[in-house]
Design a protein around this nucleic acid. Structure first.
Lengths: 179, 179
DNA sequence: CAGGAACTTCACGATTTTGTGAATGTATTT
DNA sequence: AAATACATTCACAAAATCGTGAAGTTCCTG
């Protein structure tokens, strides 16, 4: 029962997990390819992979990698890193990038607030519809506000834990700005 | 400039807004038809519409209404209500249903927690990948926990406002800071 | 109890989406 | 400076999705 391996050092077990995790990510709205790529890099021991490695591991074309990576870097789930001695680029996933993405992705919530707000101009003032729209608008606005406090508490908690459990790893809080 | 109307009492202005709001909803992952239907009912003064009204207003087939409504009721964005003297059913939207949906939709967050957890079984123990997976798992678990507090504060706030401003005027609000 | 109205389900056609191969662009190395 | 190695873009084909019409089912009405 020697560990089955594939070109880039993933065991078949790990490969299966990558697909499994990708499915979960896909279920929350991300397209298939970006999900698979994100999952693969996340699971890789180094936390980074090159385009060629991704193509070989996931059995997809370089074109698919390119397209998916472009999307991933645009929204900030993955960052690029140039490798000094090579033309190759590495695509990096650190856990913080996803966390920050969720924390600061106010765009989604804001578009709801704006969207409901617009409705107040077209329905009967003080009517039942206006009341519904107002409540929803306020709720999403409230979530927006609350997100700050939530993240504050998260970072407080991680600081505390980070001090308690020295894993011998340099703090991963620094992430590369993409582009 | 008499108000242009369509069969079910929507002005063209309102119809345009319905499509606009539907687009926002669609942008966050909901399919087109469910989004349009939800938007239409939400904007309707009564907060409820029949299948026939929906079909006429949105110019779609009864089949499309049926399919979309089934999905909407399954996830809880819309509820059904039988009309006493008729075979017709009404589909109801109240602002609370969406709010509760978001508040209690722990399934999404939980599947992330579970998903990351599974990964810990296949990566090198105490390695960098394991550290990433653990942090993400903890983060989503944290969000799950925090959701309770957030909703508690929301309901406290609405109770307060309900007493103070019956029409639901948006009052300057501050983010909660305390635990 | 027959007729019909309302909703649902099913199979199909049309549209949209998605990934590939080939061509193109760009930077590094010799 | 030419060659080469990566990465990206484009057009197309395959595949998945979506909405419709028609048939089916269920429950009211007369």
């Amino acid at each position: 029962m020697a560990e089955q391996t594939v070109p880039e050092g993933f065991t078949t077990e790990q490969l299966a997990y990558v697909e499994d995790l990708a499915a979960t990510i896909t279920a929350s709205g991300v397209q298939r390819m970006p999900s698979r790529i994100y999952a693969a890099i996340l699971v890789s021991e180094e936390g980074s992979m090159t385009a060629a490695e991704l193509a070989a591991t996931l059995r997809i074309s370089p074109a698919a990698v390119s397209t998916a990576v472009r999307w991933l870097t645009q929204i900030g789930m993955v960052s690029r890193r140039s490798v000094p001695g090579s033309r190759r680029e590495q695509y990096v996933v650190d856990s913080d990038s996803l966390i920050r993405l969720i924390a600061h992705d106010t765009r989604a919530l804001q578009s709801w607030v704006v969207g409901f707000g617009r409705g107040l101009g077209v329905v009967e003032p003080d009517g039942a519809a206006a009341r519904r729209l107002t409540e929803l608008q306020e709720f999403f606005g409230f979530l927006l506000e609350e997100m700050d406090g939530v993240m504050e508490r998260w970072y407080a908690r991680t600081r505390q834990q980070g001090a308690a459990t020295p894993t011998g790893q340099p703090s991963p809080s620094r992430a590369a700005r993409n582009r």
